[in-house]
Every structure is written in structure tokens, then in C-alpha cells.
């Protein structure tokens, strides 16, 4: 399973989101630190789920980090997050 697919499956399982876009943006960061051939290092995630509605911005991000888990977060170099309730 690619990193993108892992991100998608863990977030779907945790939040049953109304909207979930996982984009591998690694190519836009070619040559930057953390980048490697083949991509799967820099991601953009847009997620919307009702459970985020009552959370602050920091809480929303923490919930996403927790759902991904430290192992997966540790393998991602950069994660741009847009979380909506």
C-alpha cells in the first residue's frame, strides 16, 4: 500500500469523512530536504467530517495526527492539512 493509500484508509476509518482528498505533492518539493525519488514524502490532505465541528483548529490537527499514528506521521516529511467541520 502506498503512503497515500495508508493515509486515506486510516482517515476514512477514524472519521468517516464527508470529504477526503489526499494529494501527493512531493513533485512540487523536488530537491527539497526530505524529498526522495518516487515521491510519497510531501502530502496535502483536505478532510471534512462532522466530528471536527466542535474542535478548535489545534484539536482538529491533533485528531488527524492521532488517527494517522506516530509511525505513519514519522514516515511523512510534510503534511499540509485543511480540516473542516
Amino acid at each position: 500500500m502506498s503512503v497515500s493509500e495508508e493515509i486515506r484508509s486510516r482517515l476514512e476509518a477514524a472519521f468517516a469523512p464527508d470529504r477526503l482528498d489526499v494529494t501527493d505533492e512531493s513533485e512540487r518539493h523536488r530537491g527539497h530536504s526530505g524529498w526522495r525519488e518516487g515521491g510519497q514524502t510531501h502530502f496535502r490532505v483536505v478532510i471534512a467530517a462532522p466530528s471536527f465541528a466542535a474542535m478548535t483548529r489545534v484539536e482538529r490537527h491533533r485528531a488527524v495526527h492521532a488517527a494517522l499514528g506516530p509511525d505513519l506521521v514519522g514516515r511523512i516529511h510534510a503534511l499540509a492539512l485543511t480540516v473542516e467541520g
Binding site: 483548529r57 489545534v58 490537527h61 491533533r62 495526527h65 510534510a78 503534511l79 499540509a80 492539512l81 485543511t82
Partner: peptide, 25 residues
């Protein structure tokens, strides 16, 4: 901060967020 990424912004001792949150705010 129990926050896995850099940058991290703090204002008057309080964690505000990283790049996405600061941009949105």
C-alpha cells in the same frame, strides 16, 4: 507540544499552531 511538525508558533506562552493554522488564521 505533542505536535509532530515544524514550524510551531507560540504567543505569550500558548501554542498557536503550524503553517496551515497560521495561514488560515
Amino acid at each position: 507540544s505533542d505536535w509532530p511538525t515544524i514550524p510551531q508558533l507560540y504567543v505569550k506562552g500558548e501554542f498557536v499552531g503550524g503553517c496551515d493554522i497560521v495561514t488560515e488564521m
